[in-house]
Design a binder for these strands. Structure first.
Length: 368
RNA sequence: UGCCUCGUAGCCAAGCGGUAAGGCAUCAGACUUUGACUCUGACAUUCGUUGGUUCGAAUCCAGCCGAGGCAG
């Protein structure tokens, strides 16, 4: 019997993944990972769970345990707290210091779930690993999930073909609705559990309060990019991303104010009036640390610049092995640090990190 | 010191005798495995203050306080 280790998060998706694999005749083993330790990581400010008897992580473990008991499969547990800190969280903080907007969950997949996790699975004697991701793998290549609304291939675009081999995504073939139904029909306790959101293993938190634990915040001016007038005070540039509107705390305007740029040297946050402010739009970007899953370097394809944004047509110019220039008609809030993921139809060709953003051949200088 | 204008929620601002529009901000939900965006909802028993006129005032009158302007 083929052995598979399923990453159990305590949610519905991984529970159903395990169930489906078991049905298919695999020898299924659950593995629960722990990537964050509030005490070790000095995660104090803004942590709503410090005084709880049972932290959400422990609750998730218990949920996973119940599911495994129901399915009659063993559940192991492993700590990647150190690895997460070194490979994901360090990157996360470094990017923020540079004024960029990182995507930690992409790195969590690249450096944790599809690396030490796989090694642990092998150590447990498994041939395959599986997770509850909404995506599909065909011939070791990555494809979008059947359920377009839940598709998570964007978060997996930094994986290599090697990492994708011997990986199974059972729920990638199903819609969320079907997954919930299967869970319900099989009396899994997590059938109605709310989908988890927020940063991988840290969860939904007050972002600014959370950051205060790790980065000093320097207050500075908020300047209207059109009038050059000081209109407010920001509490640290790392707390803002391009296109953001909330948290500015500036009232009295006829229209909404959006973050359109920052100047790290002068510690200035630039804002513009209106959701269609021209300073938000670009038509070209340089992507670095490109990962091509199957080395398909086309010159025309689709791209997604932010999770849950629509794919748009792009022209690609390959600069060197891991940098490329993408051109597009016009797109709002393309932000350095975010991931640009390429698609050919349903196939995810790979992705990289947005490095620089241009408009009509002019670099958007405060766009970091 | 005299005259004029103005004082409505955190901000901007309608209302000008009939019982407080709207926008922004904020907060809460929805959406969402990245702080976004978007959507929905909440948000002044009260109109600088005191007194008066009136069946009834934020709206009219007077005093006071405060802001700005003109004169000196």
């Amino acid at each position: 019997m083929k052995k598979v280790v399923v990453g159990m998060s305590g949610g519905v998706d991984s529970a159903v993944a395990a169930l489906l694999l078991k049905r298919q005749g695999y020898d299924v083993v659950g593995l629960f990972m722990r990537n964050w330790d509030s005490t070790i990581n000095n995660d104090v400010l803004g942590n709503p769970n410090l005084n709880n008897d049972i932290c959400p992580q422990e609750g998730d473990y218990n949920d996973a345990l119940k599911v495994c008991e129901k399915l009659d499969i063993p559940l192991h547990r492993i700590d990647f707290v150190k690895e997460y800190w070194v490979y994901v969280f360090t990157y996360f903080l470094e990017e923020l210091k540079r004024g960029r907007t990182p995507n930690p969950d992409v790195m969590c997949n690249k450096y944790i779930k599809f690396d030490p996790f796989i090694k642990e699975a092998k150590r447990l004697g498994a041939e395959y690993i599986a997770t509850g991701h909404y995506a599909r793998i065909i011939d070791d290549n990555l494809y979008k999930a059947i359920d377009e609304n839940k598709d998570q291939s964007y978060f997996l675009c930094q994986l290599t073909k090697n990492q994708l081999s011997n990986v199974l995504f059972p729920v990638g073939e199903l819609t969320k609705e079907e997954v919930r139904k299967i869970a319900k029909d099989n009396d899994l306790t997590v059938a109605d559990k709310k989908d988890s959101t927020g940063i991988c293993f840290i969860g939904e938190r007050n972002f600014s309060e959370f950051l205060k634990n790790y980065l000093p915040s320097k207050k500075g001016k908020i300047v209207n990019i059109d009038t050059n007038e000081e209109v407010g005070i920001h509490y640290g540039l790392m707390n803002y991303t391009i296109g953001q509107r909330r948290g500015l705390n500036i009232g009295g305007n006829e229209n909404r104010l959006f973050v359109v740029g920052k100047n790290l040297d002068k510690n200035i946050l630039y804002v513009g009036l209106g959701s269609d402010h021209e300073a938000l739009y670009s038509n070209e970007a340089i992507i670095e640390q490109m990962n091509f899953i199957d080395n398909k370097k086309t010159s025309k394809c689709k791209a997604k610049f932010r999770y849950r944004q629509k794919d748009i047509d792009v022209d690609v110019e390959h600069l060197d092995s891991n940098e490329m220039k993408v051109k597009y008609s016009s797109l709002k809030a393309v932000t350095p640090g975010q991931i640009c993921c390429l698609y050919d139809g349903d196939e995810c060709l790979g992705g990289g990190i947005i490095k620089e953003v241009y408009k009509d051949n002019k670099k958007m200088v405060f766009y970091n």
